[in-house]
Computed example of a mutant assay.
Amino acid sequence: MNGNVPAAGSEAVPEASPGQSHRDTVEYIGFRVDGQAVVLNLSEHRRLSLERSLDLVNHSPSGFEWGYSGSGPAQLACALLLDYYDDEQFAREHYITFRNQVVSQLECDGAAACWHLPGEEINAAMATLADDVVALADGGRPSPTLPENWRAVSRQDRRVFQRADRDHYIVLGDGTDELVVVLCSQGDRAYPAPLAHRTVAEEADVEQVIQELAEESNDLIEPLEGEH
Rank of each mutant, 00 (worst) to 15 (best):
G110C: 03
E202G: 07
A8E: 11
D167I: 15
Q162F: 10
L220N: 05
G9L: 02
D165C: 08
V209Q: 04
E216M: 08
R99F: 04
V182G: 08
R198L: 11
Q208E: 11
R158V: 07
T128A: 15
P142A: 15
R32L: 15
R159T: 13
A113N: 10
E148M: 15
N41C: 11
P18I: 10
A77N: 06
R166T: 08
P142I: 12
I122R: 09
E44D: 13
P142N: 12
L129Q: 01
D174I: 00
A137G: 11
P194Q: 07
A74F: 11
C114V: 04
T25Q: 12
N218M: 12
Y191L: 11
V160N: 04
S143P: 00
P6K: 09
E227K: 06
V38A: 01
I96G: 00
D174C: 00
D132I: 05
D167H: 13
V180K: 02
E202V: 13
E215I: 15
D55P: 00
Q208T: 10
V171S: 04
E121W: 07
V57C: 10
V13T: 12
Y169V: 15
S69N: 11
C78H: 03
V39E: 07
A135N: 03
F31H: 09
L40E: 11
L224K: 04
G63A: 06
G139S: 08
S69M: 12
S71E: 12
G110N: 03
Y169S: 13
Y95R: 04
C78R: 04
P61M: 07
I122G: 03
D83L: 01
L146S: 08
A204F: 00
S143L: 08
C184Y: 07
Y95P: 01
N149G: 04
D174Y: 00
I96D: 09
L76N: 03
S71T: 06
V57W: 03
S154W: 09
V206T: 04
P142D: 14
I210R: 10
R23P: 02
D132S: 13
H116V: 12
D132M: 09
V103R: 14
V26K: 08
A196G: 02
F161V: 02
A124P: 00
Q20N: 07
S49Q: 08
W150L: 05
P6Q: 07
L172N: 00
Q162E: 09
E178I: 13
R47Q: 14
Q208I: 01
F90L: 02
V39W: 09
Y68W: 14
Q186R: 15
D24I: 11
P6L: 10
A135E: 14
A37P: 01
D55N: 12
A112C: 00
L183I: 06
S60L: 04
D138E: 10
E107P: 03
A164C: 13
E121P: 00
D167C: 15
W115P: 01
I96R: 15
E203G: 08
T199D: 08
L56P: 03
A201W: 06
L76G: 05
H94R: 14
A152E: 14
